[in-house]
Structure formats: structure tokens, C-alpha cells
Design a protein around this nucleic acid. Structure first.
Lengths: 229, 229
DNA sequence: CCAAAAGTGTTTCACGTACACCCATGC
DNA sequence: GCATGGGTGTACGTGAAACACTTTTGG
């Protein structure tokens, strides 16, 4: 099955920065390496691109194989090919970042055969290779993009409260927001559906539940609307 | 010099979308292919990544070799690896976009051994491979980024008039801007240096010349300033 | 003197920001 | 009844947008 080429070629991999959100803070999903180099170290899920699959397909496949995650928001982040970033040979990696609803995925990731775990982004262990840098880039991209694209909803369950939504932005942007102003602004955008339901099992007054109206957002966007927090 | 690997690997290339600006509109630099596939077609400058050079180095080298351009603003755009995008074999390409000052580069690009030419972005010929799509992505990235980062200055000579600056934004964003509001806004930012010089050889009242104060911009940015047009 | 572009101020309106209290619910 | 978060309105200031005429220069 080996192959011969006229000139040497870098190896090509994909790596995924998977973000999740819980009641405390923004989390990232890491897996513990079993083999050298960096055996025992935490790293981003990822692996080699097969010669007949697209880059995004490779990222999704690796996510599924290593963490059990499927069907998530996934976007290309950056491609890193610094010579020497892998001690074995020249490896170019296409980094992606994913946003998942923690409620859907916590169990599967934890029970997978590989050692996978969620870490607070601001408290992640030192990572293998240059994965620290990739994580930092992904975090920055998320912080930037969440403000002008409605991708934050990918981190929330389909039905959420305004409090959860505000908490999302506070966690990602790392600053507090004024409750009244936040609610005014997001409601006035007209991209949320008031579901006329309230949360259950909370030890205080239950909040109204909303959902994100993607169809309406798309329609409005075509007419010049610009999401912005 | 040939090499054998255990598994097949995609070939890895870089492609560059080079933007320039003249008195009319936004231009892109294309080269005409001499060989199959797509012989005779216009294409983005680019080529194979060597196994010991970084991706950005590869992009700069190809630019130099194919168009004579050096020392320009260069930023990674996107990596495209759709199987079948090159009819010969699997090729993954890392696309970059560059911003050049046309005054510096017009002559060298035109007199290079290869057939290179500037085209209006909105009037470019059909390109080889999926380069149309890459060009469209680059154009969109430029349109987006020029509004919140001072990268537009890379397209202007070191000394420019406010009219030129406004023209730049009108060409890139493809809409007209109000002259008075534009001047007020850009002057009030405090990132331009009034050079106390005026343009020469114009058939009308000569305008004041300005330059972009990058040092001051960096200082202000560190203190929370946000460029925005 | 004519053509062409440079340069300049004011008004209006929308939106961001700051800010504090009562309400509903579960325990 | 108390603790916890849910939910609401107003006043102020800044900045975006709309808009037209005079000045300067070269030909």
C-alpha cells in the first residue's frame, strides 16, 4: 500500500478545537495522547487526512472517532505548517473549531474508549505540539466572531433563557454585560422566538424559554440586517 | 530524489490573490498558464510547497518567482482540499491574499518572463481550477477586514490624499461614502499624519498629503482603540 | 473664465450606556 | 419569609447620517 512520489511531501492532518459551555465557563474538549511524542499529554483531537476525503470530512471523521461527536458547527480556523512543529517529520495541519451543545455530548465524550475530558479554556493544561497556540487562535476567533455572527446559539440547547444567552456572551467575551440593555438589544433584533414556555426544576422564579429563528435571521440578513452584540 | 511513504499523501500548494488599487478600481494580479491542465487560462500565482519551508515562505517565494513582487502585506485566507479540484491528483492548496501598492509593482509584474496582468476584480476572466472561488473568498475577506483593520493603507502609496483614501474604501466596499463625514471620521481617529505637503501635477487644486501612523495606531490599539470605517 | 476637485459645519436621529427596584418561585 | 434570579423603563450623551456651497488651481 506504500506510495512513491518524485518529491517529498508534508504529511497532512486536521485538528479540532471543540468548545462547549456550561454553567461556569467556556470549555474545550481534549484527549490524552497514548503514544509518543508527547505521550500522556493532552492534545486536540485530530489525525491524518485520507487522500480521498475533503478536509472538513476528515475533521468530522476524527471528531466522531475520537470523541463520539457528530453533527456540530464546524469551521476552518487556520493552517499551520511551521517546519519542526512535529518532531518526527514535516506535518501541516488544518485546524478547525467546533461549537457543541454540552447537553448533547457530555456523556459520550467522557465514556469513549479514549481518555477525553472537558477543561476550562482559561485553565487548560499545557498541550502537545503547538496545540496551545491553536487553542489560543480558536479562542480569539470565537471571541471575535461571536459578536457579529449568531454562532453563539450553537453552544446553547435549542431552548434557552435570556440569562443563559447573556451568560454565553459574558463567558466568551470575558466581561459582564448589563442585563436590561442586553435584553432590549437582543429582543429588538427580532431573531428570537418566544416559546411561551418556562424552564423547570429551578430553585427560583422560572425564566421564559426562547429559541433562535435561523430562517428569519437568514431572511433578514439577505435584506441587509447585521447581527451585532 | 523520489520518496516513498506508507500511505498516499495529497500534494500541497499555495495560491496568492494579489490585490492592487488604481484610479479606477480594485485589481487582481493573474498569470496565464503555459501548460495543461487549463493551458492558456488565467490563474492565481502559486505553486508547490517545499518540504522544508513554511507555508508563508512558500507563498512569498512563489510571488517573487512568478510576479517579481516582494515585501508585501500577506495573510492566510483559507485552505481548500476538495477532492477533484485538480484533475491530475489530490491537491490541497493554502490560499493567501496580498495587498500591494500598485505604484511599486506595476512595471515589474508586467515585464516578468511569465505572462502576468492586472484585471479589475469585478471583470476578471474565468480562472483555472477553482480559482474563481478563491478570488471571491479573498474579495469578501478584504471587504470585511478593511472595515475594522487599517489594512487598506497597504494598497496606497506612503503619501496619499484623503480623496485617495476615500476612493479606496469606495472601491473595496463598492458603495459611495459621504465626503465630509468620511473626512471627519478618519481625521478624528488620529492615526493619520498631516505631512504639510500637497500633491503635484494635478489639473486642479492640489490636495494635502497624509501618511498612516502605524506606531501610533499600535499604541492606541493597545489602549483599547478600535479602528472602524 | 471654466472645469475639476478640495475643503468645510450644522442639524437630526438612533442607539449605546448607565442605573434600581419589584416580582415570582422554591425551599 | 427568605434567598435567588426574572423581569422591566428612563434619561443622557455620543456618534452616524444627511446635506450645499465656497475656494483653489491649472489650462
Amino acid at each position: 500500500m506504500s506510495v512513491t512520489y518524485e518529491y517529498p511531501r508534508p504529511a497532512l492532518t486536521v485538528d479540532c478545537v471543540v468548545f462547549g459551555l456550561d454553567a461556569e465557563d467556556l470549555k474545550v474538549l481534549l484527549i490524552q495522547r497514548g503514544i509518543e511524542p508527547f505521550a500522556g499529554r493532552w492534545a486536540l483531537p485530530g489525525g491524518f487526512v485520507r487522500v480521498d476525503e475533503s478536509l472538513e470530512d476528515a475533521a468530522r471523521r476524527e471528531l466522531r472517532e475520537e470523541t463520539g461527536i457528530g453533527e456540530v458547527f464546524l469551521e476552518q480556523l487556520y493552517t499551520i505548517g511551521t517546519p519542526g512543529r512535529d518532531p518526527r517529520e514535516r506535518v501541516v495541519t488544518v485546524a478547525y473549531y467546533a461549537l457543541v451543545k454540552l447537553s448533547d455530548h457530555t456523556i459520550r465524550a467522557a465514556t469513549d474508549a479514549r481518555n477525553a475530558a472537558w477543561f476550562a479554556v482559561d485553565d487548560a493544561p499545557p498541550l502537545a505540539f503547538d496545540h496551545d497556540r491553536i487553542l489560543a487562535m480558536a479562542h480569539e476567533r470565537l471571541r471575535g466572531k461571536v459578536r457579529y455572527r449568531p454562532i453563539g446559539f450553537e453552544l446553547l440547547p435549542p431552548k434557552f433563557t435570556l440569562r443563559q444567552l447573556q451568560h454565553l456572551y459574558e463567558a466568551v467575551l470575558d466581561r459582564t454585560l448589563d442585563k436590561r440593555n442586553f435584553r432590549k438589544k437582543i429582543i429588538r433584533m427580532g431573531i428570537l422566538v418566544d416559546l411561551d414556555e418556562i424552564e423547570t426544576d429551578v430553585a427560583h422564579r422560572a425564566a421564559r424559554l426562547y429559541s433562535f429563528d435561523k430562517k428569519k435571521y437568514d431572511r433578514m440578513t439577505r435584506q441587509g440586517f447585521n447581527f451585532e452584540i
